[in-house]
Simulated scan of single mutants.
Amino acid sequence: MIKISADQINHKVGAPYYLILGSDPYLQHYVQTELRKSFLQKGFDEQLTFVIDNQTDWTAIYDSCQAMNLFSANTLIFLDFGEGSLNAAITTKLNTLSEVLTPGIALVITLNKITKSQENANWYKALSDKLVVVNCTTPDTLQLPQWIKNHLQQQQMTIEPKAIELLCYYYEGNLLALTQIIAQLKLLYPNQSISYDEVENNINDSAIFTPYHWTDAMIANKTKRAIHILQQLKINEFEPLILLRIVQRELILMINLKKGLQQKSLKQVFDEYKVWQNKRTIYTSYLNRCDINDLFNLLAKLTEIEISLKHDNQARIWDAMFNLSMQFMGLDKC
């Protein structure tokens, strides 16, 4: 088995089986397109796509593996799970599929994620020796600058480092819009190094965030980033009540962690509440900065906002959310 990133796909064509893992729509489309072109050049003229869910006709998929095309003996099959995931019934179908694959069949499976236990399935083990796993997860805030640099190198473009930071700020989480603006810049400023001002004159705020980006930014005390994310959530008309629920869970967790630290070590408390390893550093810093009384005050403030929201006071709800963000980061004590 070989594991690669999406931008390495052109260097790893030729394998019979591919597993596209990750939910980024741009990266998924890019990898699928490159694979289609590569297999077409190799004589895989018949290319079939099946959307996988609980109503999928697996007999049609099995038949496509066994039926000889009149014009081509080579068939490329795409199994696209969309937003769906593996379950026991589908795993059984995949196990059967792996048993009927022939050398003339190439298989590309697109799946948002796979668990360690699911990797123990028969189909996964059967394909693994000839399988290429392609990571199509959206680059996070730390990975994005390097991703942009790699993309610029492929496009034979040069952009000032500060301008790359600007692209990260305005296009995080939205690779489609990011690649579109880079293509636009290439047309506007061919054969030259593109400056910060030239980028700034052509950008718009197209970043896509989740509420968890917001809470992580607040816990990490990244004020500018937290406010930017909240602004984008507002623009995209994200439901405020859902945001309040997510912050509420974080606050209750923080309170329980602070209480636990009175008798146990940090590691013991983190283990008890199953805090992810990649979040323990920012949680530790936040717990060292905050006081448990401040956390209770935040919880009371959040309750006030929710009561206000339920009385249909939509006009000021986002102002209250911004104030809550500042208070969460210790910049506006109540």
Rank of each mutant, 00 (worst) to 15 (best):
C168A: 07
H29K: 10
A67L: 10
K301N: 11
S308C: 04
S195K: 05
L167T: 11
W318I: 11
Y170S: 15
Y189R: 13
N95M: 06
H228I: 14
D291F: 02
N122C: 04
L257A: 05
D205I: 12
A6G: 02
F81H: 02
K93C: 03
T49F: 07
N204F: 01
N236F: 09
S325P: 05
L241P: 03
Q155N: 13
P145T: 05
C136Q: 01
I148G: 07
T91L: 05
T179K: 14
C136G: 00
L86F: 08
L101M: 12
H11E: 15
L241Y: 05
L287K: 10
W318L: 14
S72Q: 02
D24M: 06
L261Y: 01
K222E: 12
R289S: 09
Q263R: 12
D291M: 04
L70G: 00
Y189G: 05
Y273P: 01
K259G: 01
N174R: 08
D271T: 08
I159G: 09
S85E: 12
P139V: 04
Y169A: 12
A6K: 02
I227A: 08
K224Q: 10
L94M: 13
T96Q: 12
W147H: 09
I242F: 07
Q184A: 03
V134A: 02
R245L: 09
Y17I: 04
L187M: 14
K3V: 04
T59S: 04
Y30H: 10
S128F: 08
F328T: 11
W123G: 03
L27R: 07
S98E: 14
N236W: 10
E119I: 02
M1Y: 02
A217F: 05
N256E: 11
D216P: 06
K279P: 10
H228S: 11
